[in-house]
Design a protein around this nucleic acid. Structure first.
Lengths: 249, 249
DNA sequence: AAGTGGTCTAGACCACTCT
DNA sequence: GAGTGGTCTAGACCACTTT
């Protein structure tokens, strides 16, 4: 019954992995040091190289060591780190609602970042953008769920013509049209008092609380190409996520 | 130079993995079907079993198949899913600020969930809790960064005595004292108007916008044992996270 | 009993890194 | 050139699931 029993009955490579992990956590092999070579470990424990490599693979998967050809096996952590993770499988899933909503009333502007805008977006002045300001509404087009303003690098200004038909996030539209792959998203959530102009469009009293979400999307080069700000009326929206424990192995 | 070239020069197991992945995406092996057995694949491609298994391991890691002893290799996806993930390595990291802040002015209450509270927390009426209401302040004890109310399953009421000394999240205190391991966290973020009582404690005008974060912590049995609500004054707080692309393999 | 994947051995050659 | 990890073979036994 008990799977705790890692000593007997367990495969040799697991026992070996456990033994090495224990040595590491005892400080026998400090972080940064090299483990003995595979041949050494084979002789030391009288196991075949397959078994030793399987054990080392296990240690690699739990994040205790890295392995490099020509160098050796380096200890990079003394304890398996317990990780929690939130995982999504598409960009649209980030905006949980995006697939069921559309953008309406777009206003397009061509802007060049001055000092102020550059500082706000975290870029350098002089960068050219297509600025899209719009409302996001549900299928029934009743009350809008968000006001949104997007600064999109001018190279991708071509999304403009496809925007009306597209339901979902703009990032995924860019991916589709330009074969650009998003590799990192940074998201900041804060609370704000909705200013008068936005309040009117969202049909809420000015100054009422709103959830502000700022997202930047970066491509394969790591450079952000899209900066999106959404303001959601307080009671009409919340952002949920679940973080699950990721077992080491 | 080009690493795109997966055909020649690449190890056989990678070529094989690619070939099988192609077959799967072409629909030759639909989702839910079984791949040929390892021996079959060996004969079919004239590779050793090691090479075949290494290829299948690769497919498993990319999430295309699962393998079970006695059953076979089952196709579970036709395309490698592109995942984005947010990963943290400790509970305290979730509350990015928690390690530099402390709770003050605790008020403890023993409460039993009535219909209303049970509905709010998503539990069943009759469950017993220790309710902790407190303010979270920075090191200099100037303006508080949050008002917080926690409902903690009564079994863990013993944290009460250790709370004053503890900086960081309450969840990690429970983990330490009771050897309980948190395995899942659910977090919901919304904007709210700060009510009068809380506003006074936070030293902001009543009705001003606040960021409300609700978190539930579940243990190894998957049952939530802690329900925490924090309200942060709008301008004094934001929640950031980065989602990175997790390459398949 | 037959078939599957899981573990394991002994031995080989290769690509890489360092000196 | 010596040592490292990466790839690969041929063969074996075992644990598990289904028939």
């Amino acid at each position: 019954m008990d799977k705790i029993n890692l000593g007997l009955g367990a495969p040799r490579y697991q026992q070996l992995a456990q033994a090495i992990a224990d040595s590491i956590s005892r400080g026998e092999y400090p972080v940064g040091s090299l483990l003995p070579g595979e041949e050494d470990l084979c002789r030391q424990f009288n196991f075949s190289r397959f078994t030793v490599r399987e054990a080392l693979r296990h240690l690699q998967e739990t994040g205790l060591v890295t392995r490099r050809q020509g160098i050796g096996t380096t200890v990079i952590a003394s304890t398996p780190t317990r990780k929690f993770g939130h995982m999504i499988e598409s960009i649209d899933q980030l905006q949980q609602y995006a697939s069921e909503t559309r953008l309406i009333d777009h206003v397009f502007e061509d802007v060049v970042a001055d000092e102020e805008l550059a500082a706000e977006l975290g870029t350098t002045p002089g960068m050219k953008f297509l600025r899209i300001t719009a409302l996001r509404v549900g299928a029934d087009e009743s009350k809008p769920v968000a006001w949104t303003r997007i600064h999109l690098a001018a190279i991708y200004a071509g999304v403009r013509s496809s925007l009306a038909d597209h339901s979902g996030a703009i990032g995924s539209l860019v991916e589709k049209l330009y074969d650009q792959k998003i590799t990192a998203i940074r998201q900041t959530v804060s609370a704000t008092a909705i200013d008068e102009a936005v309040a009117e469009m969202l049909d809420v009293p000015p100054g009422s609380p709103g959830l502000r979400i700022d997202r930047t999307y970066a491509g394969h080069d790591g450079i952000p190409f899209e900066f999106a700000t959404s303001i959601h009326p307080g009671p009409r929206f919340s952002l949920s996520m679940q973080l699950d424990w990721m077992s080491p192995g």
